[in-house]
Design a protein around this nucleic acid. Structure first.
Length: 438
DNA sequence: ATTCCAGTCCGGCACTGTTT
DNA sequence: AAACAGTGCCGGACTGGAAT
């Protein structure tokens, strides 16, 4: 049957050296700046591609390699690989699906924070695939009972990268072996925890990335069941607070930098309590110097909720000193600032200071000044229940009152500005602050 | 109060570009 | 050429909010 070939697609029919014949469908389009030339073995995909070249959206997708024809090819190859194995899916496949759905799109993000996070997530998961885990080959008896502990001497004992396992073959035994393998490699508990939780998330997200594979698991997630007891131990919390003398010394060193943004960024960090990524991503349109407030959008904060940061007089002055060249307040990328800050710390002989310590220092300083508050810090831990809509409305009004006053007078107001949801989090800082003047 | 989980930040290093 | 800067990667560690 002769399929009709639409205008725009040309059939290429050639004879190979081994006398076999190949037919491909070539789509070649040149319209102004838009030039593509691609051939397909499947006419339907060629038609799909041709269609995409005809709309602006389609051309954009083609430029990004995300046009329908390409995606169909990707998907077909992936499905083919999985159907061969009775619809089963390896952990590597699941990780790839996860990266495609949740991470890859952010690798080229304009938002610095997003890009850095996406790259780190991808690197971690790609590495996790390769960790070798022992198992008993199919067809051999898995030792149990008194012989269970002699597993590694059993017939059929072998090891392979955890990514090569089919997910429904993974049990808590394999995932626990993963933990053991990483421990043997001398990795820190917190690092291994990060691995396990990342993989756990990959399996959970199968529900959305590969529903068929997810249903096979029937709610079972081998990483949830892994024996994490060896990874336990009180979680360490950093306690460092920057003293006034240290701040002075550091500022002096920062002022010697060629880039005048260095001291400004640090000064603002310690006078607003803002996080590094929040400061570096800040735009002038978000800064209201007249009212003395910064509006942060939800996608800029760690808590993924928007918030208002009050500018105390010190911070307000600091902002006024910054020249406005374009909408960005600072022009560093995260990595650039980090490295330079590191070098300055070294020069100042203050190598045990971290950038995030500015946040802790800000909180402890403000707490020291809140002497009129009726609420003792100890009480803060208990008072964290009401958060219904009505309360939120009242909070909003009080936040505006605080900004009007240009000062932070209570712990609650402090929490608003640093975006701690409850006294629990702030108290982690508060307990570590220097003695409060009662 | 501790643990879970995911988001964010850290030091060290390599490489490249710019200023002194 | 030496010092200073900017960017990116990697394995590791800390943080924030909620569950236990």
């Amino acid at each position: 049957m002769a399929a009709t070939i639409p205008r725009g697609i040309r059939v290429i029919d050639w004879k190979n050296a081994d006398k076999s014949r190949s037919i491909r469908y070539r789509v070649r389009v040149e319209r102004g700046d838009f030039v593509v030339d691609r051939s397909f073995s499947d006419l339907e995909r060629a038609k799909l591609f041709l269609e995409d070249t005809k709309t602006p959206q389609g051309r954009l997708l083609i430029a990004q390699g995300r046009d329908r024809a390409s995606l169909v090819v990707d998907e077909v190859e992936r499905l083919a690989a999985e159907f061969i194995k009775e619809g089963r899916c390896t952990l590597s496949h699941a990780i790839d699906s996860y990266l495609r759905a949740y991470v890859n799109g952010k690798l080229e993000s304009e938002v610095d924070k997003e890009r850095v996070t996406a790259k780190a997530a991808k690197a971690r998961l790609e590495f996790c695939k390769t960790v070798r885990v022992p198992y008993i080959k199919p067809g051999h008896v898995v030792p149990s009972g008194p012989l269970a502990s002699l597993r590694q001497f059993a017939k059929g004992y072998d090891e392979k990268p955890i990514g090569d396992f089919y997910i429904d073959d993974l049990t808590e035994q394999e995932t626990t072996e993963y933990i053991n393998a990483r421990l043997r490699a001398g990795k820190a508990n917190s690092t291994i925890k990060r691995d396990i939780y990342a993989l756990q998330s990959v399996v959970n997200k199968l529900r959305y990335t590969d529903n068929k594979a997810w249903k096979r698991l029937n709610g079972y997630n081998p990483f949830v069941q892994a024996d994490k007891s060896k990874l336990k131990g009180g979680e360490r919390r950093r306690r460092r607070i920057i003293s006034d003398a240290e701040e002075e010394a550091l500022l002096a060193e920062l002022r010697k930098c060629r880039n005048p943004e260095m001291p400004m960024i640090f000064a603002l960090a310690i006078s607003t309590g803002m996080r590094r990524a929040e400061l570096l991503g800040l735009r002038w349109s978000q800064v209201d110097l007249d009212r003395g407030v910064i509006h942060l959008n939800a996608d800029q904060t760690k808590a993924s909720e928007d918030r208002m940061v009050i500018l105390l007089p010190e911070a307000r002055e600091a902002f006024k000193a910054i020249p406005q060249v374009d909408d960005r307040v600072f022009h560093y990328k995260i990595e650039g600032f980090k490295t330079n800050f590191q070098r300055v710390l070294k020069r100042a002989g203050l190598t045990d200071i971290h950038m995030h310590d500015t946040r802790r220092s800000f909180i402890s300083r403000v707490l020291k000044n809140i002497t009129a508050s009726p609420v003792a810090i100890a009480d803060m831990v208990g008072a964290r229940s009401v958060s219904n809509l009505e309360r939120r409305t009242i909070d909003r009004i009080r936040q505006h009152e605080m900004i009007e006053a240009g000062a932070i007078k209570t712990e609650q107001e402090l929490r608003w500005t640093v975006q701690h949801k409850d006294g629990q989090t702030t108290s982690r800082y508060a307990n570590l602050a220097p003695e409060r003047t009662e």
